[in-house]
């Protein structure tokens, strides 16, 4: 009996650690929010509220209009999704429904390789090889533009899109397909009218997570979008330089004195990004809770 009690002690410590680790995720999200608020909220006291909604971002002279930055992030993200969705979802459908086994075994690891490519490597290639190409092919003033950013971001969002959407399609019971085929539908009709609609929540999750990926990407966009803090208005904005929120933080944070107005505003930008990603992930998560099994796979 005594030996039993002695053995229990380490076990209790380990179990306490496990419990604490389990709670830690909540703690970390709380800490991140706390530090963003702690360093970001003073900006609202230092900079007039409506100045934050101005259209000029020129921090060294006290212009902190966030609109060009928010607009820049939106333009690049929308562009990225317009490119990523057809390719990503097409690839997912191909892998899940059409591809022969060998192609599937080849494609899945390749897509994972794409997920593993460091963002600086893509940014580097984008800068030296892709931007000049974009300029000459499209005959735009410069290749350092929202479009170049969107193309690379699409590349970074595609692995997420493919794996989550493919999981969702895979999870559709085979009996659905069999029923449709038995009724005389072609394979494509089955995919389009039965399988994809049955997996639509998962496909939606995939798209939302892809959006999250694109909004948050930093180094790549900083290296290829030109970082001009212009208001991106109209369709032409896709072909012009933009400045995103993430690139702004990365480019300027090193510069500022801790506790200065500029420092606080950059944390506010971080806060806006946090809120964006929170909403996007909440939307993805809402679907996730309906379908637990998929939820567990989606982050892997």
């Amino acid at each position: 009996m005594r030996a039993e009690a002695v053995r229990r002690w380490p076990e209790m410590i380990v179990e306490a650690f496990i419990r604490a680790a389990g709670y830690s995720a909540v703690l970390f999200v709380g800490l991140i929010l706390f530090f963003l608020l702690r360093e970001g909220l003073p900006a609202f006291a230092e900079v007039p509220f409506d100045a934050l909604f101005g259209t000029r971002w020129y921090p060294i002279e006290g212009y902190y209009g966030l609109l060009p930055l928010v607009g820049g992030t939106l333009v690049v993200t929308i562009g990225a999704m317009l490119i990523a969705m057809p390719f990503g979802l097409g690839t997912a459908i191909f892998i899940a429904e059409i591809a022969p086994r060998w192609a599937r075994e080849l494609l899945k690891p390749l897509v994972e390789v794409l997920a593993g490519l460091p963002s600086v490597v893509l940014g580097f290639l984008g800068m030296v090889a892709m931007a000049p190409l974009v300029r000459t092919v499209l005959d735009v003033p410069t290749g350092l533009s929202a479009l170049s950013g969107s193309i690379l971001l699409a590349g970074m969002a595609i692995p997420t899109l493919v794996s989550v959407a493919e999981d969702a399609l895979d999870a559709v019971p085979n009996s659905y397909r069999d029923a449709a085929l038995a009724l005389g539908a072609t394979r494509w009709q089955t995919i389009w009218r039965v399988t994809v609609p049955a997996a639509r929540t998962g496909v939606l999750t995939a798209v939302m997570l892809g959006v999250g990926r694109a909004i948050g990407e930093t180094m790549t966009v900083m290296m290829v979008t030109g970082n001009a803090a212009r208001m991106p208005l109209g369709l032409a904005a896709f072909f012009r330089p933009v400045r995103t929120m993430t690139a702004t933080i990365a480019a300027e944070m090193g510069e500022v004195a801790n506790g200065s107005e500029h420092y606080h505003v950059l944390f506010t930008v971080g806060l806006v990004l946090f809120i964006f990603s929170f909403i996007v992930n909440l939307a993805a998560g809402a679907v996730v809770f309906q379908q637990r099994k998929r939820a567990e796979r989606l982050l892997s």
Binding site: E61, M127, P132, L144, N227, A228, A229, P241, R243, A251
Partner: peptide, 26 residues
């Protein structure tokens, strides 16, 4: 007087050199 909002702000000197080398508009 301010920099035109169209001005590309490149994170480094080498960014400027790289663009100037290959873009006749720059």
């Amino acid at each position: 007087i301010f920099f035109s909002p169209e001005t590309l702000l490149l994170p480094s000197s080498e960014g400027i050199s790289a663009e100037v080398r290959q873009n006749p508009n720059a």
